[in-house]
Every structure is written in structure tokens, then in C-alpha cells.
Design a protein around this nucleic acid. Structure first.
Lengths: 224, 224
DNA sequence: ACTATGCTTCGGCTACCATCGAAGCATGAA
DNA sequence: TTCATGCTTCGATGGTAGCCGAAGCATAGT
């Protein structure tokens, strides 16, 4: 069963190391998991037949990557469940600092900046949050229109909610999902404030220098 | 870690038994998993602290149910991964026949009927499928407008694709997701062809007699 | 050819954990 | 109270799987 593959601590560490979409060699993964190459080799073989990772030979190295986004999605889902009960393994979230700071979760912003953004919105009464449910206030609508040229009529969708709280993998706190979360991320990209990392499969979001400034101006910590 | 909880065969069987959203007693779950009550008790305690199930005392029975839809979602995701590599446990998919036949997967139709629908669409060239990607043909658009009053302009969404193949848990074949999948399910409900089961938390979709006929007329097996 | 590096296979050790029997609580029924 | 049922706790057992050392291939560089 797939779950038992992910269940083992060593394998889980390897998989989390691969969550940024990049491919790592067998020995790098061994080091990530804190085990010897022999053991890692055995684990990787199991992960491969389980369809979670795919190898790619290159010279005398063997690069492993997650098979596809579905795998990454399920892993993130598992991490989400683990996070909310506080029963997690040693390594919490991704090690890669860039990935911790800002990344794509489905189609919206996650990571430190994502959490920070929702915090700021909540503090300034631009949204109101009740558990999983978030709603946009009138002030929030004005704010979006003024600063990001997002009008709330564009956000309605028959099925998907405008706002939704999504548990952040690395921060263990909520960030903003829903059509609004997606629209804001899209706008950031259009304004050239941020862009998804170029390396294929990567989920890192890189902010430009000006983007970082603008973002901080809008959603910075209170004392800013 | 959550994954290791799901990884154990006995626990996995219990969880699958709970996937229909109903609550079961500890002894029923023990029987489902083919283990003694003592062992089941230990497993259920672990699942509880792991946040996967919630108990409810009622007389001298203890009913267990999945904590929420997120848990069910992750489990379905895991089952999906397991399905496509063919490395599954003994029980494939849900035991409940109603759940196998038609159920909600996020917001669209899954189960036997869901798979059958996509099969029919594909056979009649109403959609064209390439692996995970599905696109609606011109004939398909006419078909939807004529028979279900769904116009394709309603389906566009900045992020979500109109059509997407979603691997079916019980059938191990694709059914239709995306905004179109959601819109069709919604239409079935509006036309009173089908409705989600009344019991809270259930994912079963019940078709009415006329609904079943109409559905068969549109998406029935070729020989019909 | 020789050497170094990266990875795998093999064998044996160890630790963990699922499992069950037996006994202990709790609740409900008589 | 006494009994029955449902579930849990305790203790002991056994099987499985992770782990590493040593040795074996394969590729690359010299």
C-alpha cells in the first residue's frame, strides 16, 4: 500500500526533500534521511515500484524525482492532516528556505508570505475568518479594487468559494485559498511582483525586488 | 506520522469501511478488518490521537467516524495513487454497492456511472482525451447545450480546467472532473435526476427512477 | 589497465509493533 | 444485585522490516 511507503520516517524524509520538484541523487537522499546509502537504495527501490518516485540515470548518478504533481498533492494533503494534530515527524515542512518562504499551493500563494498575507488581511478587517470559512468585508472589497484592481464580481464561481482557509504545510497556520487566493497570486504574477521558479516542476515562487517591497507595503507586519 | 497510521493493513481496512461517511461501532470495525476487538481497540485509539477518526459514545457502543471530509479526501487520494500502480490491498474500493455505483468526488460524479459517462462521451467524440487532458469537441458543446442546457461559456475559469480526467477509486478508470464535471453534476441535481444521500457525511449519490432512465438514454452503453 | 565514485545486493542483527489471551471496567438489562 | 454485552488494558509472543557492514557491479576519469 502506498501509505505504508510514506509511513516510514526515512522514506518520508526523502519524499519531503523531493517536494520542491527538483530531482536528487540517491546519496543526497540518503543524507537527507540520515541513513547509509545501502538502506537508502532499498527504500528508493520500494518507492519506485510504489510509483511515488521516478529514477533517471545520468552517468554514475541516479536522480530521483516525484513521479508527478498528483503525488506531491497527496503528500501535501497528508502533511496537512499531520500538521493540524501536531503529530508530525521531526522535520516539519520543507527544508528549502525558498520553499518555506513562498510557494504555489494548487494555484495560490503558500509559505511564510502566504500566511503573512492572510494575517494582515485579518488584522485590518479586510476579511473575517471563522474557522475554515473566510468572508471578504466591504473594506476588503475596496482594498482589492484599489490596490490590486481585483473586482469581487470576477471572483464568484458556482462551486468554488471566494475565500477559504488552507492549512499551510510549513507554517502550520492558515493561508488564503479560494478564487480570491488564486486571483491575487495571478495578479502578483501579472504585476511582475513574483513568478514561479523556472526549473520545471518547482513549486517555489520567487519575488522580484520591487515585488517584495510592494508586497511588504500592502501586507507587511504591523510595525512596518 | 499520519501515513504510517494508514499504512497498516488492519487500520486501512477500517478506514475504507468508514469512507462512506457512516459511523461504525468498534466491533463492527474489528470484523471489517478481520481482527479481534482488543487489537481493534488499540488501532482505533491510535487513529483517534492521529486525528483521523472521531468517537461518539452511545450507550455501551462506541461509534467511530472519519473526522471530516479532508480526511476522506486524502484517503481517496492515496487510493488513487495505489490504484494506478496496481499495488493495492485486498479490498479494492468501497464495499458499499451504492457507493461504488455513484458518489461525489469533490463536486463531480464518480463511481460506475461517472466512469460510464466519460466512456460514452469519449466514444461519441463529444470529448477527446489525451492522458490526463480532456478537451470538449464542437459536437460536445452542441450536445451539452441541447440536452443539458449547459453552455460552454459558463465553464471557463481562470485556473480550473473545463475538463480533467480524475482517476476513479473504485473503478480504477477515469471519470470526468473540472468545471464541466461539476456543472453536469449540478445539472443532474437541478433536474432531479439525482441527489446526494440525506444521511450527513454520506458521499453516496442516489438516482431517481426517471433520472436513471434519462441518464441511460444520454450516456448508456453503446448497445442501448 | 588501474583507481575512484556511486549505487546495489547479500546476510545477519535488532527493534518495533501488530496480534491475541486473559482480566478489568463500564453500561444496560433482568 | 446479578448477568450479559461492548470495549479497554495488560502482558507475552512472534513476524516483519529497517538498519548497517562487507562485498559486488557499473560508470567515469586518468
Amino acid at each position: 500500500m502506498v501509505a505504508s511507503l510514506v509511513g516510514d520516517p526515512a522514506r518520508a524524509n526523502m519524499l519531503t526533500a523531493l517536494m520542491n520538484g527538483r530531482a536528487l541523487t540517491a546519496s543526497e537522499l540518503a543524507q537527507e534521511a540520515g541513513i547509509t546509502p545501502q538502506t537508502a537504495s532499498s527504500h528508493l527501490a520500494k518507492l519506485e515500484v510504489g510509483g511515488l518516485v521516478e529514477p533517471e540515470k545520468q552517468g554514475r548518478h541516479r536522480y530521483y524525482r516525484l513521479t508527478d504533481d498528483d503525488v506531491a498533492g497527496v503528500l501535501e494533503g497528508l502533511a496537512g492532516l499531520a500538521a493540524r494534530t501536531g503529530h508530525m515527524r521531526v522535520r516539519t515542512g520543507p527544508k528549502d528556505p525558498a520553499l518555506r518562504r513562498a510557494r504555489i499551493c494548487y494555484d495560490h500563494l503558500a509559505g511564510d508570505l502566504g500566511v503573512q498575507m492572510l494575517d494582515s488581511l485579518r488584522e485590518r478587517n479586510l476579511v473575517r475568518q471563522k474557522k475554515q470559512d473566510i468572508e471578504l468585508t466591504a473594506e476588503g472589497e475596496r482594498f482589492l479594487a484599489k490596490h490590486l484592481q481585483i473586482s469581487s464580481d470576477m471572483l464568484t464561481h458556482p462551486r468554488r468559494p471566494v475565500c477559504k482557509a488552507c492549512l499551510d504545510w510549513s507554517e502550520r497556520r492558515h493561508h488564503l485559498a479560494g478564487t480570491l487566493g488564486a486571483a491575487m497570486m495571478q495578479r502578483f504574477a501579472e504585476l511582475k511582483w513574483a513568478a514561479r521558479d523556472a526549473t520545471p516542476g518547482s513549486r517555489v515562487v520567487n519575488f522580484t525586488r520591487t515585488g517584495e517591497k510592494q508586497f511588504a507595503a500592502l501586507f507587511g507586519k504591523p510595525k512596518d
